[in-house]
Computed example of a mutant assay.
Amino acid sequence: MNTTLGDLAQSFMLQRRGAALKNDIHRLTQELSTGRVADTKSVLAGNFSYLSDIERDVRVLEGYKVATTEAAQFTETVQNILDGIQTNSSDLSDTMLLISTSAVETVLPQVEADSRANLANLVSSLNVDFGGRSLFAGAATDTAPLVSEEAILTGLISAVAGQTTASDIFAAAQAWFDNPAGFRAAVYQGSDNALSPFVLSDQDRLNIDIRADNPVLRNLMMNTAIGVIASDPSLALDVAVQRAVIAQAGQNLLGSQDQMTKMRAEVGFSQSRIEDVRARNAVEATSLEFARSALLAADPYETATKLEEVQFRLQGLYSVTVRLSELSLLNFIR
């Protein structure tokens, strides 16, 4: 028994076939341009667990990439600030030692001016924030760690008032900076707790704990501030004591350079560690991308061949459609 299709049914069948071929062309073109199969379900045969694990690990590594970038920028900023602080304190030390041996009394005020500028810069540097987060306030990331240089000078003058020798002045100054009821109560407003560690990978945590109340930084602030108050009229120190105080402050600043170098070396080690972890994460991410590509890769030669075949079939379908559209009773009976 012969079965024939009516004109309407035949037209509908040709439209469906044409739509299917167009979808195939779109899919194959996409695969050829991206290099990945469009229908992952058919490739994985319904087993998505392996691909899901890969994609989860890729997302985790993307998060670690953000963390390592932030940690690298954070430590670089800390390193640059410590570099500036060390350079300024070294220069001030040279100035103090030079002027303290000068026979000209009129140069002593230069120490006060240089020390005041250095102290203001030191406080400003330690109050710097990174992305809205304080660098040297420990866990109190929303707080500037130091009140102001004026708070330091006011507290220090009160602490050394009445002292008449250089050794007594430094002893009183050291006691005020070390006393929780002194410097920490009047000037430091950061946290006693360290900043939360940076999570760089599944195994790596990085702690950066340099706060503005660090003993090395306190020592710099103390000796710099002493350079400011040495000639303060309220203390009424004679010139010989002023020279002795300035000379001792210069020696102390000079002696702090090794400690500053050690602190910066520790930050440098952290920077190196961040780069090592970042490189390791990058290698792992590349391996995962390779595995995912191998799993979902579309063979370019095979895809191009299929695309050419589908295009040829679509062209043939168009030709048949045109031929059918030209049929009429008049053409049939000729």
Results as ranks from 00 to 15, higher is better:
D94H: 13
V277W: 00
L217Q: 04
Q15R: 09
A71L: 01
Y318I: 10
L288R: 06
S328K: 01
I226V: 09
R133V: 04
E275D: 14
E62F: 06
F198Y: 02
T224L: 04
L97Y: 00
S287M: 12
G250S: 01
L32A: 14
N281R: 03
A175K: 12
A120C: 05
Q15D: 09
S270P: 11
Q203H: 13
Q311G: 06
A175F: 09
T40E: 15
A103Y: 13
Q242W: 02
R211E: 03
A185L: 15
S115K: 01
V241F: 04
A294K: 13
S234V: 09
A236Q: 08
S49R: 12
V128W: 05
D24W: 03
V60D: 14
A19D: 15
E302T: 12
N281L: 03
V199M: 06
P215R: 07
A72S: 14
E70P: 00
M1V: 11
L32F: 11
L317Q: 13
A181Q: 13
S231I: 12
E76K: 14
Q257A: 06
D299K: 03
H26K: 12
F170D: 01
I99L: 07
T87A: 11
T141L: 06
D7E: 07
Q110I: 08
R17W: 07
A304N: 10
A171H: 04
E112W: 04
V123G: 01
N47M: 05
L195N: 08
G182K: 05
L330W: 13
S191L: 01
Q251R: 09
A185K: 14
A45D: 14
L97R: 05
V320A: 09
G132H: 04
N219G: 14
L329R: 08
Q259G: 07
A236T: 08
L92S: 01
T101V: 08
A159P: 01
V66P: 00
S49A: 14
R273C: 07
S33K: 11
A236I: 08
G162M: 04
A159Q: 07
L324C: 11
F74G: 07
L329G: 13
S272H: 10
I152S: 03
Q163W: 06
T3M: 08
P180K: 02
L237P: 00
F290W: 07
R184V: 10
S148N: 10
L330D: 15
R59K: 11
S287Y: 09
D53M: 15
S89L: 05
E266D: 15
A240H: 08
A249K: 03
A291N: 12
